[in-house]
Design a protein around this nucleic acid. Structure first.
Lengths: 120, 120
DNA sequence: CACCTGGTTCGACGTATGTCAAAATACAAG
DNA sequence: CTTGTATTTTGACATACGTCGAACCAGGTG
């Protein structure tokens, strides 16, 4: 899905969407954007799905490979959509199957927000 | 598999929590625990409060210092409680005021989950 | 075409969540 | 002990969220 109206931080050049959490208090807008990503990982099922995609060989996985998380298939699809909308995953249809892969730059940005905060 | 159970020599109550997200699919229990922390940062107001505490000089802030986030004071208190319950903040009363500070080890653990995943 | 399988969307339902005003608690100072 | 300030708790409310089954869409295969 080339529905890229989400966030402008998938681009090469990777401006981190936000400063480290302990650099200065986040503004309302920064908090709004960043919270969306944390929120996307704030559900156990979504976190398992995300981890399943991220750890799958080749960096991508088809839905059928990761659907075994204890909820119905419509629910899986719903959560994958949420992760996509948060900018954490992208999807592509190839023949019968739909493949999901992680957006590495966004993940790195989130990590920096926390690790820089942690070590400062 | 890094069999390092010795990791947290800092605070009690701090579990190593989880492997990096791309090492292997998280189990249900791991996802449950980890999602709680992400969820705590998944609200804009909470994220601003957390950032305000983390960036405040001395590593701690009294509630009166960070209450200006656009919601009522009971709501601020409610969110601070959530952050405390998620293990991200701790609080201490000193005289009239209540001071909050970040739990650094937990923050570092969350960062590792993401950054290791990002760079692997 | 009809049919099957993989995946998404729709509609509904119960629960969780964010919010506030009002009441309650904790402490300091008269 | 009474008043005043800082913070939390309570109770209520609207909205958001996670979940499911049913219906729907997309491709491959006969």
């Amino acid at each position: 899905m080339s529905n890229v109206k989400v966030l402008p931080l998938l681009e090469p050049g990777v401006e981190p969407c936000c400063p480290p959490l302990n650099e200065r208090p986040l503004t309302a807008e920064e908090a709004e954007r960043t919270a969306k990503m944390f929120k996307a990982l704030g559900d156990p099922v979504r976190l398992r799905l995300f981890s399943a995609v991220a750890s799958h060989q080749g960096g991508e996985a088809c839905v059928c490979d990761i659907s075994d998380v204890g909820v119905s298939q419509p629910t899986v699809s719903h959560h994958l959509k949420k992760l996509r909308e948060a900018g954490l995953l992208s999807s592509e249809r190839r023949g019968t199957w739909v493949y999901y892969r992680v957006e590495p730059s966004v993940l790195a940005a989130m990590g920096q927000i926390l690790t820089k905060a942690a070590t400062a």
